[in-house]
Each structure stands twice: as C-alpha cells, then as structure tokens.
Design a protein around this nucleic acid. Sequence first.
DNA 1: AACATAAGAATCGTTCAACAATTCGACAAT
DNA 2: ATTGTCGAATTGTTGAACGATTCTTATGTT
Lengths: 228, 228
Amino acid sequence: MENVTAALQRDRGRLGRSSAAEVVADILRDRIAEGLFVPGQRLSEESIGAALEVSRNTLREAFRLLGHERLLEHRLNRGVFVRVLSAEDVADLYRVRRVIEGAAVRNGAHASRDALAAIKEAVTEASRAAGEGRWQDVGTANIRFHQGLAALNGSPRLDEAMRQLLAELRLVFHVMKNPRAFHEPFVARNLELVELMEAGRAAEAERALESYLDDAEKLLMQAYIPEP
Amino acid sequence: MENVTAALQRDRGRLGRSSAAEVVADILRDRIAEGLFVPGQRLSEESIGAALEVSRNTLREAFRLLGHERLLEHRLNRGVFVRVLSAEDVADLYRVRRVIEGAAVRNGAHASRDALAAIKEAVTEASRAAGEGRWQDVGTANIRFHQGLAALNGSPRLDEAMRQLLAELRLVFHVMKNPRAFHEPFVARNLELVELMEAGRAAEAERALESYLDDAEKLLMQAYIPEP
DNA sequence: AACATAAGAATCGTTCAACAATTCGACAAT
DNA sequence: ATTGTCGAATTGTTGAACGATTCTTATGTT
C-alpha cells in the first residue's frame, strides 16, 4: 500500500497544477521545439487565441512565461516573436554548457551506476536512430544525452536551466538545413565520453567534453553565420 | 555616420521597453527583496491591483513573470504567495553557486584587471558598512561581490541566473533574525578570496571558495532548519 | 465537547467587450 | 526620393461579468 500511494504521489502534481495559461505555454513550447513556429515568426494574439480557443488575456499570460524562457521575444506594441538567436547568443549558450556540463563531468566521477546507465541509454538510442537515418531523432536523443549529463549535478535548478538552454539551442538547429552533418559525428563521441566516465577517468572525460563543445560550437557557427 | 547609428543603437533599448506588467514586476521584485513582503504571504490580486492602480489582468501577467523567477509561488485557485524556501531549496542554491562561482574563479585567473577591481570595490564597501554597523548594507554588498564574481564567466545568461539565485537567497536571509552573525564573518574571507585571484593563485582561490560556500551553507542551515 | 456537514462569502480563473495607444502600409504632396 | 498624412490593424490595458474552487462560519449530530 505504501508504494502505491507513493507512486500516485508522483502523478499528483500533474492534476490540479495546470492553469490554462500553463497548458497553452506547454503547447506553444512543443510547437516551437518541433519547428512549427520558426524563429522570427510573429505569434498573433488573435489568430492563436482563436485557434486554441482561449482568451487574449490567458494567451498573454502564456506569452509572458515563454518570453521569460527566452523562446519568445516581446516587442512593445508589436507583439511576440519566436526568438531569433544571434551568433553571440550561440556563443553564450556554449559558455553556459561548458560550465554546467563541465561541472557534471568533473563531479560525475562518483555518479551512481543508474544515472550513467540512463545516459548510456540515450547514446544507444541515438546510435539506433542514426543507423536508420532518422536524423531528427538523433538530435533529440543527443539532447537527452546532454540533459542526462547535466543531471549528474543533482540540482533541480541546473536541470531546469539545462532544459531551457537546450530548448534555445533547438531554435538554432531548426534553421540549419543539414541536421545529419551536425548530429551524426557526435554520436560516437558521446559514447566515448560516457565510457571514460564509467572507467573513472574523470580528467580525460573532462578534456573530451571540452573538445566536444569546442567542435560543436565551431560547426554551428560555420553553418550559422555565413548568410549575408 | 556609421558610428552615429552604432551609438544610437545602444540607446535603443531604453525606448519603449516597459510595459505595465514589467514595471509592476520590477516594483514587486524590489518589495520582496527589501522584505516588505515576507515568505508565505499571500499577494491578493484585488488589494495589490488597487494599490498600484492596475487591472487584475495586468497584475496577473506580472505575477507570471515573478513566478517564473521562483520568487512567487502559484497555487491554483488559491492565489500567489511569496515563496517559502525549504532546506532542500537552500542546499540546491548552494549546489548551483558551487558550479557557477566555481567556474568563475577557475577561469577568472585570466580575468581583466577591471573586472577584479569592481569585485574588490564591493568588498571595501562591505567592509565600510560593517565598520558602521549597517548589517543590511553588508549583506547587499556581499551579494554584489558574488554577482561580480559570477560575472567573470562573461556570460549574460549566467549573470541572469546568478541574479535570480541571489534574489532567492535574499528570501532566506529575511527570515533570519541575526543578519550580523551571518554576514560579518564573510567580509574578510571575500577580501582574501579576491586577493588570491589577483595574485594568480587560482587553485588556492578555488579551495577558498569551496570552504566559503560550505561554511555559509552550514551556517544558513543551522539558523534555518531548527524551528519545530 | 468534538466532529461532520452544509450554507455562504471571498477569491481565483477565464472570458468578453471596449477603448486608447502604437505601429504599419498606402497614398499624396513637395 | 523624401517627407507628411491618413486609416486599418494590432497590441496594451481596463472593467465587468460569471463559473469554479477554496475558505469560513454556522448548524446539527453523536
């Protein structure tokens, strides 16, 4: 009986915790992540409110939430737009990744076997998707890999920060024409990284992560900037 | 002509950047920081809306912003409350501090002389305030010290994260009865830390920060938990 | 007296309609 | 080609309304 109530306790949060504004924010967040809304696009209060059948006021509350997550940009008297990330934004995202993921790898030496297994699972999933040419899924699995990596810090706040960071990064991925070229090369390196950690070779893992992030950032910048 | 437009570009941000909801959020954030609103207190839509002379809808938008910053807590159908931090929250805040400030100190070895000077300025201000018994101001200066420390990462996003983190911490400070006991001992240690960094002794600085954060967390926990 | 229950008040969640303020595009004037 | 002007469209903000939920209080039962 104890474990039953404990199990239900976890689902409890989903129940009364959702106001309309939060549900709308969840929906819009998903649509942005999947690329239905592209960077720079304006989100009209009237059309979206009509489509979701919520009032403008409720929609505006949802916009505030997503604006605070940096997925939407509020321009006074002109509406909200899907965020367009600059090269400087990308650089900053990688700055933050080095700090958060770097700390995770450094302290993750004494990570639980379970946590590492969850991360490895994401790698094998990415590998499988790569084998079947589902590059979109490769990207998703890779993101889950890094989310799991950050989770080694054991901090809910850092988990949340990482979630937002990766959501922003997805905005950049979507403007890239060739997802394969960007995601494929890193599957093997993710495996290498987690194996170094399993072996307890923390210093090497840290260096591997460093070079991983350096290369990923460079690749992204290359495909990102030259569009005059 | 080029430089003229570039100069004006910098002023662009000041124009029209403030909707009523954002102004209200700024005001409420200040009031929470200064302790006018205490943790656990409910913020009535009606009374606050009347006092600030804004509509409920506008106020709710502001509430959404502050809720996302973890300063307010939204309970469905019961309103918004000033956040009450648990011991686990405090532990998590210090987890994040170790990651962000730790990275700052580690990479701050090659920090600009200017950035270090700004940090040192915060220490001397804290020292002056301590000499005059203004413990509230000591706390404020200490916060500015750590904000400056985090800024060595050179990342706007980490700066913002640090701002929010310290705002949360202030919620904890306000429930403590003896601010002097908590803030005073750390002024000297802050100075020691920045001097180690100036001398380029990064490893020692990192260890000093570690023990600083350990002690601060313990002290906070002691004064925080035992209230049955 | 303690407890459960039900009626009532208060507050939130959401919608709707209205209006002022601002932006944007088209068109005219110079 | 630049500037000025007008009107349409959209956002910013307000106020009122109503259902839903919670809190309070009074009532009744054991």
